[in-house]
Design a binder for these strands. Structure first.
Lengths: 337, 337
DNA sequence: TGGAGGCATGTTATCGATAACATAGAGACA
DNA sequence: TGTCTCTATGTTATCGATAACATGCCTCCA
């Protein structure tokens, strides 16, 4: 039966116009080499003349494949996670997958709620930032049998696949580099470990390094409500300068914090690194442009996204490759420390 | 018929366990007040004990409502668009909608391809950045009868709804402010107008303002491949200083460019604003922290996202409100100009 | 006391694509 | 020439939820 032209065309309409059955249209779209060129041409013409758009909800329902990948990140704004998301969309798009995005702040509970909402879409895969999840989330994910990639950290007990680097090791190595450069009293500044797990792992790496050299850690905790911002970096630097005249280097958990610290020093006319050295984490674009250029840890954020998506795609294509990838990091020594 | 416990539970399984029919479960989930409290409680128990997750593909197929909103932005990385996306997810989540995200670079063709791919998901709405789209895209969207919100600009001929501000007017006002402050020879630096339409509109606003004062525009075009980055801002500033000693103020199309310019001046020991003034666009976080603090145009990026999502949600709920919202801008005069 | 109206719940058909199975016809080869 | 294989295409049933319509029962008031 023909339908009013005001309602969208269905596959059956395309089939009728091309003089074939619906399944042949379906094949022409999904596995073109199983359809003869002549028929394929007729179908293409019909599709164009009807403006046909396949209803993926119907396809998903029957085939149990949604071609959707869901990703959950803590935040996009002013963050290197945005690059990771771009890296993911890039690879996923190449393989015909689309990205359903959620941002969870730094709350495992919100993450859990988002995953619950996303699972109803039958995503073919899931990408999460971090390895700190609620117990219920882990249970739910195993039950759903969805391929999962965790990112931005490493752990011995991933849910499934993982693409990241060792925040602990990166911070440890940066701290050792600062020690090697001759700084005697190195402080660490980040948010509370339970508020942001990655920052917490970095703090632990710092503690390990100073302990190895028989020194006491000096830790400044950034107020949680202000977060990893330039402004809170400046505030924290002000506290360090006011409270601990003996500190000769500060290692910040994030480049924005470090940038704020540099600005605070500039405002006060304090020489960096002569009076106090500053190091950051992330190697954001601004790090190499600021004066003095920022010593920091380079993290391949975009590549983490690309690689996470690749692992997922490989799994979905039945190609079984690695399950855990350490993307590494790089200590970048510049002028600020 | 009962199913193996290894396959996910369906609504019928929940219904059986709760001793009701499937439709009652459906109602308990979507319109709980139409189900008696006692039955609702039994259903809730059944859902939890089976770990039931509704299959939204099935629901979408029958109800023709996907509860998905698709958004396409040029880029997320290092960009204020990321805040807009966060604003959108925030509002959409409150109303049970999920965000399908695409990034199109600055290519209308990629945007068109993304929309085509997204439409198959039957999105309940679509949010686009900008108002420059291919003709085919406009046709396709009208045919699909999807509510559309364009953002970040204004136009007399929106596809449907629009939430933005006037890039032209914002740049014009900033230029006038610079003139008023006494700068005689003001240059503009941005990417080529056809590469980034928003930057192009800003350039036009600048030209209008200088022309009103009988002056000739001085335009520096940032190399397209490097884009709106700190580094290309520094390079552009170097060109300005080398080629146009008469220029006493430079208005950059973006805060990152302006930031790079400030850094280049610092490296060369050139006083800002005494020797040359610098203004930016966007009021990114770094603008108020850098030294000298950056004179710029504040754009409510997050609010644009929130408002765009609200307009869409209102439309979907049958509440017909405004179709065009000017979110305005604010000239922020700081130390750099 | 009876019927109108409203609430809670049920029955049936359906959304549109595709997996699984079926079949027709062409060519290959003994 | 018969049968075997392979390719191109078709038929049927189905994925899981929900719209539309149906029904039973309770309450209220004339």
């Amino acid at each position: 039966m023909p339908r009013k032209s005001s309602v969208p065309a269905r596959m059956a309409d395309v089939a009728a116009r091309a003089g074939v059955s619906a399944i042949t249209v379906s094949r022409a779209l999904r596995t073109p080499d199983k359809v003869s060129p002549a028929v394929r041409a007729r179908i293409d013409t019909a599709i164009r003349s009807l403006g046909y758009v396949p209803n993926l909800a119907a396809g998903t329902l029957k085939s149990q494949r949604s071609r959707i990948v869901a990703a959950i990140v803590p935040t996009l704004a002013n963050s290197i996670f945005a690059e990771t998301v771009e890296g993911m969309t890039e690879i996923l798009r190449q393989h015909g997958y689309q990205l359903l995005l959620g941002n969870a702040g730094y709350s495992p509970e919100t993450e859990e709620a988002l995953v619950a909402a996303f699972l109803g879409r039958q995503p073919d895969g899931l990408i999460l930032a971090g390895v700190q999840h609620t117990k219920r989330l882990r249970t739910q994910l195993r039950a759903a049998r969805v391929p999962v990639v965790e990112t931005w950290e490493l752990t011995d007990a991933p849910i499934d696949m993982i693409v990241g680097f060792s925040n602990f090791e990166a911070a440890r190595r940066m701290t050792l580099a600062l020690i090697e450069r001759g700084y005697r009293r190195i402080a660490f500044a980040g948010v509370a470990p339970d508020a942001e797990p990655r920052s917490g792992r970095r703090q632990a790496g710092y503690c390990d390094a100073v302990a190895k050299h028989g020194r006491d850690p000096v830790i400044f905790t950034v107020a949680e409500e202000s977060g990893l911002t330039i402004r809170s970096g400046a505030n924290t630097m002000a506290r360090v300068l006011g409270e601990r005249a003996d500190v000769d280097a500060v290692f910040f958990a994030n480049d924005f914090l470090a940038l704020g610290a540099l600005m605070e020093c500039a405002r006060r006319g304090i020489a960096v690194p002569d009076k106090v050295a500053v190091a950051g984490f992330g190697d954001f674009e601004v790090a190499q442009e600021v004066i003095p250029a920022l010593t920091t840890v380079r993290i391949p954020g975009r590549d983490i996204g690309r690689r996470a998506a690749s692992l997922l795609v490989d799994r979905l294509l039945g190609r079984n490759g690695e399950n855990a990838v350490d993307m590494g990091f790089e200590i970048v020594l510049r002028d600020s420390a």
